[in-house]
Computed example of a mutant assay.
Amino acid sequence: MPIPQTGHPAPDFQLQDQNGNDVKLSQLRGKNVVLYFYPKDNTPGCTREACDFRDEHSALRSAGAVVLGVSPDDIKSHQKFATKFSLPFPLLADTERQVCEAYGVWGEKSLYGRTFMGVTRATFLIDPEGKVARAWPKVKVQGHVQEILQLLEGGAPAEPPAVAKAPAKKAAAAKKTPARRG
């Protein structure tokens, strides 16, 4: 299935978290939901992403968001992962991959010349009305959580171009200044 587009209703679902609790997206109406999909518990990139969400969890909550992580791993795997890294948010077990497919993140991947089926790292910001406010279809872990937080804290779509110009000026200034050798 294609990735849900901005402004379209987010596909509803019900999955169990690492503690066996049912989590239904429609029950979170009225809140912003950060729904992030990741390939596998306890792998380097997924651990870093989960820990980034953990480290910014209180700021994300203060900005009015609920964080949900989703992967095809089972509840037991999620329990171990959440406990090992003190993750304060639900990890949802999509063992049948129905939610991954509904969000267009399950498909063919390749790594080191090998092709296989898997989850593409992606994040969806779902607004209080249950619509996709923003989609990140191919997430790069570094800086991703901060980008979401900035958007939630009022960094509306009009702001990023202005923010993007400032570092470019610094970069241009840095190029003009010769590096010192010591």
Rank of each mutant, 00 (worst) to 15 (best):
Q27T: 09
L25F: 12
V33K: 10
L15D: 03
R29S: 04
L28H: 11
K40C: 01
V23Y: 10
G20F: 08
Q5Y: 05
L35T: 03
L28P: 01
N32R: 09
S26L: 15
A10R: 04
Y36M: 02
P9H: 13
N19R: 10
T6A: 11
H8E: 10
Q16G: 02
Y36G: 01
D12M: 10
P11R: 07
Q16E: 10
Y36W: 11
D17R: 00
F13Y: 09
D17P: 01
N32C: 00
F37L: 00
D22G: 04
D41A: 13
D41V: 07
Q18T: 06
V23H: 15
K24D: 02
G7Q: 07
V34S: 10
D17C: 00
N32G: 00
P39G: 09
P9E: 10
Q14H: 09
D12H: 09
D12T: 07
K40S: 01
F37K: 01
K31H: 13
G7D: 05
L25T: 12
H8R: 08
D17E: 01
Q14R: 11
H8P: 01
A10Y: 06
N19G: 03
Q27I: 02
L35Q: 03
L15H: 04
Q14L: 12
P9L: 15
A10D: 04
A10I: 08
K31F: 00
S26M: 11
N19F: 11
P11Q: 15
K31N: 06
T6K: 09
Q18D: 04
L25V: 13
G20I: 06
L25S: 11
G20H: 10
Y36E: 01
Q5E: 15
K40F: 04
V34F: 15
Q16W: 02
K31T: 01
T6L: 00
N32Y: 14
Y38W: 07
P39M: 14
Q18W: 10
K40E: 05
A10P: 02
G20Y: 13
R29D: 03
N21Q: 15
A10W: 07
N32I: 02
Q27G: 10
D12N: 14
D12I: 06
V23D: 03
P39S: 07
D22S: 13
V33H: 12
N42C: 13
P4L: 11
L15G: 03
N21K: 14
V23M: 04
P11S: 14
P4V: 12
D41L: 03
N32F: 13
Q14F: 03
T6Y: 01
Q18I: 06
D22A: 12
N42T: 14
F37S: 00
D22V: 10
P39H: 14
P39T: 11
N19S: 07
F13I: 08
A10C: 05
L15N: 03
D12K: 12
K24N: 05
K31W: 01
P9F: 06
D22W: 15
Q18F: 11
A10E: 04
D17K: 02
D41K: 02
K40D: 03
D41G: 00
N42H: 14
L25M: 12
G20K: 07
L35V: 05
V23W: 08
Y38K: 07
Q16H: 08
G7H: 07
D12V: 06
L28R: 08
F37T: 00
V23Q: 11
